[in-house]
Amino acid sequence: MTKLGLQIPSFTYPGIRTAELFDVVARQAREADSSGFDTVLVMDHFYQLPQIGDPSENMLECYTLLSALARETERVKLSSLVTGNTYRNPAVLAKTVTTLDVVSGGRAMLGIGAGWFEMEHEAFGIEFGTFTDRFEKLEESLQIIGPLLRGERSSLDGKWYTVKDAMNHPAPIGDVPIMIGGSGEKKTLRMVAQYANESNLICDDSEIAHKLDVLAGHCDALGRNRSEITVSKQKNVCIAPTHDEARGDMLAFFDRRGMDTSSMSDDDLAPFLGLITWGDPSEIGEHFSDLLSAHDGLDGFTINTIPNGHIAGRVELLGQTLAPLLA
């Protein structure tokens, strides 16, 4: 289960050429593997997301990358956060995740969601459909994928997908957990209660308690034991050995995004600095300790280190800071 996951969502680093790119990504994964993270995750997108960078920035295909990271790590589970269901046939996705499990020695996890980034669907010629379409597809996919990941045959004559006595050999080495990402109350969290082992919440910290209550309500309605489901919260973090270094890493990130932070007042900068949890180890540790104390039923976090994860030692420092809180 995911108590402390590192998501690597960005592949555009200052001064790093394409030929050097994987080395920087692999170093982050190795630092996570050795410092207390239990999972390494990458996004399943084809264009960079607008809240992180420009669509033309680097984006690596997630399952090829995860398979490569399997050879760079020894302990962490490996997953997308999360697979866009619209991109792949569900039976083929089950085969892909099973292969990741085999090449990683039993460390695969399936993170999955309905898909939402319309721009890349249109650009790649992938049907986007309506909100309802995408969630209907996700539910049918879960019905197909679940048996295949358990080593069973799978059949479904659905509205969107049809499989006939599909087999998956070899079966995964062990149990492959299914994580559903998102925090929609009517559809997403209900599907977590019905089909998943893990939930990854994407919401404001102020909404965590309510989302946990909604999930518990769905579990009660379905007869599911809520304690069987691990819940993590996605967070954006910038850690450095000192407060001033962390602030410097934040400002450098904003400057790379086209801002001129040297000309901005503290009041002007405050809304941007508030978008990410940043600071030295004591500040970061206190923030996460407070969140855990405030929310019974929150098991852990998936963390993006967008501003400075590429800097050697930053991921390691974060793992050393947070892993003891989640032990």
Rank of each mutant, 00 (worst) to 15 (best):
G184T: 10
G184M: 01
K187W: 11
K187L: 12
M191A: 06
V192R: 00
A193Q: 09
A193K: 09
Q194N: 12
S199I: 04
N200D: 05
E207N: 08
E207P: 08
I208F: 11
K211V: 03
L212D: 05
L212Q: 00
L215H: 04
L215V: 01
L215R: 05
G217F: 10
C219M: 00
C219G: 01
A221I: 02
L222W: 07
G223K: 05
N225D: 15
R226V: 10
E228Q: 12
I229Q: 03
I229T: 00
T230N: 06
T230C: 04
T230V: 05
S232K: 01
K235G: 08
N236Q: 14
N236Y: 14
V237R: 00
V237C: 02
V237N: 02
C238S: 15
A240Y: 12
H243F: 14
D244M: 06
D249L: 12
D249E: 14
M250C: 14
F254S: 06
F254M: 10
D255M: 12
R256G: 10
R256I: 04
R257I: 10
R257N: 00
M259R: 09
S265T: 14
D266L: 15
F272L: 13
G274T: 04
W278C: 03
W278R: 05
P281D: 05
E283V: 07
E283Y: 10
E283S: 13
G285P: 06
G285A: 07
H287P: 02
S289P: 00
L292H: 08
D296L: 13
G300H: 03
G300T: 00
I303L: 05
I303M: 01
T305Y: 10
I306P: 03
I306G: 06
P307R: 04
N308S: 13
G309L: 03
I311C: 11
A312V: 14
A312F: 06
G313K: 11
